[in-house]
Every structure is written in C-alpha cells, then in structure tokens.
Design a protein around this nucleic acid. Sequence first.
DNA 1: TTGAAAGCGCTAACAG
DNA 2: CTGTTAGCGCTTTCAA
Lengths: 327, 327
Amino acid sequence: VDRQPTIYSIARELGIHPSTVSRAFSRPDLVRPEMRERVLQKAEELGYSPNAVARGLITGKTGMVGLLIPDIDNPFFPPAIHAIQSALAAHDLAVMLINSDLAHNAEPALIQRVRSQLDGLVLMSPRTEPTALVPAARGLPLVLVNVVADGSFSVTIDSDTALLEALGYLRGLGHTEFVLLGGPAASWLAQQRRHRIGEWAAATGIGLRELGPYEAGFEDGLTAARDVAALSATAVLAFDDVMAAGLLAGLSKLEVRVPADVSIVGCDDVLLAKMTAPALTTVAAPFAELGTVVAQGLWDQISGRSRPESVRLQGRLVIRESTGPRH
Amino acid sequence: VDRQPTIYSIARELGIHPSTVSRAFSRPDLVRPEMRERVLQKAEELGYSPNAVARGLITGKTGMVGLLIPDIDNPFFPPAIHAIQSALAAHDLAVMLINSDLAHNAEPALIQRVRSQLDGLVLMSPRTEPTALVPAARGLPLVLVNVVADGSFSVTIDSDTALLEALGYLRGLGHTEFVLLGGPAASWLAQQRRHRIGEWAAATGIGLRELGPYEAGFEDGLTAARDVAALSATAVLAFDDVMAAGLLAGLSKLEVRVPADVSIVGCDDVLLAKMTAPALTTVAAPFAELGTVVAQGLWDQISGRSRPESVRLQGRLVIRESTGPRH
DNA sequence: TTGAAAGCGCTAACAG
DNA sequence: CTGTTAGCGCTTTCAA
C-alpha cells in the first residue's frame, strides 16, 4: 500500500526534524529561506501536501463553512450560493452544502451531524424558524440570511426603497389598481414585502388586492393568472421572479398581453428574469454584496473580532419589458 | 472559555473509560445496552457530539465528497447537484461544493487544496480536460460525469436513443429541414450529440444545417434566432434548454411563431424548460439516476469494493409545447 | 533558526 | 463487555 507522504517522510529524507517541515508550510517566516526551499522542493518531489484533517485537529479550524439551504432547485439559491462561495474563498474558506430538501424539521439534525467539521455556518433557510436552528449551531460562528433572531448576526435583503421605487414607477405609468402575489406565510422576507406594499397602498390611497400566500412556485403563478385576470388591476407585484414567470405564462395562455394589458414586477432578478418573454422588470437582490457581507461577518466572528452588526442590503429596480404604460 | 465536551468529560463523569464512551458511539454493538444508554444520556446532558475531525484523523475518512462544477448558475447543475447530494446522503456522505467559476486551469489547484479533507471526488466540469484533473485527485475515489478518461469511472448521459426518438418524432410531424445549435467545442457531450445527429441526418437523407459551436448561454440562443430564421428549416435542435429558451425569446422578437412556424427541441429538461412559453419539448436528462449511479460508484470505491464499471444513462423525450406539425 | 516533547480527540488492536 | 495502550499527522510551546 502507498500511504500519502507526511512531514515525517520529508524530514527523514532531508535529515531534519518534522517540526521544521511543519513550519515550512504553516509558518514559513520562521524558517530560513534556503531550508524552506529544500523542504518545498522535496515536498513537490514526493507529492506531499499538508493533511488538513490533522491540522484541523490541533488548530480547531477546518477551513469549512456550512451553507444550509432548503432547496437548491429554487432559482434564488444558485446566485446566492455563488456569491457567498466566492466571497468565502477570498478568506480561504470552502463551502459545505447542506441541502435540507425542504425538510425543515430535519435541519437541526443535519447541522448537528456536521457541526464539528465546520468553522462557521450560514443559515439561508427562509421558512425555518431560526430559533430552532440556532441551538443546534451552539458555539459556531453564525450568519442568518433573510431571517432575524435576537443575538444573531443577520444579513437581510431590504427591498424597501427599491420596492417603493417600483411602485412609484408603475404609478407613473398610470397604474392605479394593483395586485400583490404574496409569498409564503412563514417567510420573513415575504412578510416584510407584504407589509411595505400595504403601507404604501394605504398612504397613497391606491387600490391593492392581495392574493396568496403562495408557496411561490412557478405553478402558483400559473394558476394565479386566472384570478389576476378576473380583477380589474393592471399592475402585479409578484413575491419573486419564479412566480412572476408563472404568471406570465398563465396570462399568455389566457391571451392577456404583458405589458399591454397587465404590467408585472418580479423580485430578486434571478437568471430566469432575463429569460422570459417579455423579460421581467424586477427588484434585483444584491447578490454580490450579500456574498461579501456574509463572508465578512463570518470571518469577523471566526477570527475573533468584535461581533459584527447586522446588515440590511438594498435591492435595486431593474426595468425590462414586463412593465409599460396603462392602457 | 467553554470547550466542547469530549469522550473524556463523559468518561470522567460516569467513572468509566473513554474507550467505552467512544464505542458507545462508533460501535454501539460492542457495548452493553444499559451502559450505552447511560453514556448517551450523559452525552445529551453535556451537549456532547463526536468530533468528526478527530475521528477522521484516525479512520482516514472524513465523510465528505467534493463536487467540482464550473458554474452553479448554469441551470443544468442545480438538479444534478441536488440528485447527487441526496444520493450521497444515503451513504452518510456530505458534499463540499467546489465551484471553479469557469476558471478551468485553476481547478487542479482547487482540488489539491482540499484533497486531504475528502473521501472522494465527483468531477462535473464538462469543459475541462479530465486528464488535467485526474492527477490532482491522486488516490481519491473518483467519478467523472459527462466526460471520459481511461481508467476512471465515468457516468455519462447518453442521449442516443432519446435523441433519435426526438428526431423521429419531428420527422413524423412532417419536418424535413433541421438545424442544430451546437454546444461548446470542448464539451464531450456536445460532440457526442453533434455526431449522433449528423449520422442520423446522413442515414435518413434529411437536410441538416449546423450552427455554432456556441457557449450555450441564453444570449447565444437569442442571437442565433436571426440565423435560424434566415434558413428554411422548420425544426431546431438546441444543445441545451438554456439555448433553446434563448432561441425561443429571439424568435418571438422576430415574430416567428413556435411551434407554428418552427419547432424547437431542447436538451436536459432543466426547470427552465417548463417555464418558457411555450414550454419546451426536450430530451430529459435522468438526474435522479445520475445521482444514484454516481453515489453508488463512489461508494463502491470508498468502501473498497471492486472498481465499478462506467455507466451510460439514457435520456427520455418529453413532449411539451414547442414542437408541432410542419406547416 | 532548529530540535524536542507534548498533545488535539478519537479509534483500534489487545488484554483481561 | 470493558480497560489499556498506542498512535493518526500536525502544531506549538519551550529549549538549545
């Protein structure tokens, strides 16, 4: 059998002490350059690379961060994962994907099982009560995404300003009757958005009908089309782009034209939003920022800096083809 | 500071030897039930759970499998990741996501950095020459997806039969002039498909024009619309659903009706395929099977069973709304 | 700057 | 069935 080489293999070959080999990799500044060079070269020759598990046992760091999500097939998550992963890579942290498959009550157990292999945890499961998860993460640096809980660092996407901008934009186009396709009742984000829009409608005296709550799948939008068409509203705000896309498809089947008859605004600006015909006007989630802020917040905790302050990120209105003047 | 409890904490409290505690968790069959019960209960009480890193150091197993992908934002990957992850979970294996961000020549280094923390590796980077990756994975159980290399276990999606079925179906609808929107030149899968379709066209004497190769993004489909419209063909085969969706959007802008004027067939059956209007007829990739086969093949290698035989999975034609009779 | 020694938390022979 | 004894491969004081 051919085991992997260790610091001992190298030390033996070079007639030096294993500690020196170790230092050549972990604290190169403590080793004379020529010596370091010899070690690195021999390592290359033997195909050695440090064993992260052994290193982790003593340092207590694994270089891995868990990312809990409920459903990777939901188009919202890939860009979020992507952004977080890139930002973490800058801190030399790898990502362990914890996909709960929408089994929310299995999540604490999932976390528990891998806790000891993680340096930190990002909780991005919008429909799970965070208080159920936080205890399972005991002692792990934690970041909550789009969810809030006392005492935990959280990063939320705050659509306030952009949502109001969207609303204003639609109003400017002459729309006076609005429909909201509400997101999941258990989603903190959905509640925020619903609340905000309700306030705005009340303040401006504009007509607003709420449909839902929906699970926010494509099918939900598809079937909601009938209800939307039955109302006299000319502008629809969907909880997310997926539902907006469903609505688009549903309305198209009913021969309702978008944006000629009805304007639609989605939320998030996932890839799909550019792929519908017409392309969706939407409130873009700041994925890149999300990634940086999450990674930074996690890193601050891991490296023992002061506990970071929770952050609210602002969305941004992206105007495409699904909105137009009222006819 | 409050360290995590260890087997020693429990052993001390219970007045027994640490090994017994260890066994209560790792080999419960070797411990008297009542004793095991006491241990488990005390563990619960102290909030103990085994340290996977320490365990991994001695067993040489981490319970983690790396999953290398080039771009999580490509709609093909989420369902693939999902399937593989679920199937691996059945073997109690977690997934480490290695997203190379399309930086193909960075991939070997990425792998190298985490090699020691992995029990196995799934290479799902269709555009990277596998021979560049296999050495970096030295000694790790390996599964190649949609790529082949001598001596490595690979799982490929073989669209042969389903593709021919699709072709036959279109021909049955009266189409006689075909266009192929080819996938990336570096993609093994794209080559296979192109080859197969070419053979079929030659054998049947049907007209076939090839466009591309394309990177297979939405934009590629969008801009290809003009070229497609300029040809007299009435049936289009796109390398994947994303490009098919782009084509759909592009043709819609040109007032070409689908399927009235042109029929379109995509490939993979990603979520997007159901979300276009009209919904895409497509050759569905067997994601669930892919997951099972990948997990099984990996597990066979990890648990030291015989090296598995490479597997070719069959796609399946899914007929939706983007195909219709020739007019 | 390098060597020596101890130990991270756990498992795996081997005894008893 | 349980205790004993060694390490897994690395980092980290402490000396030299």
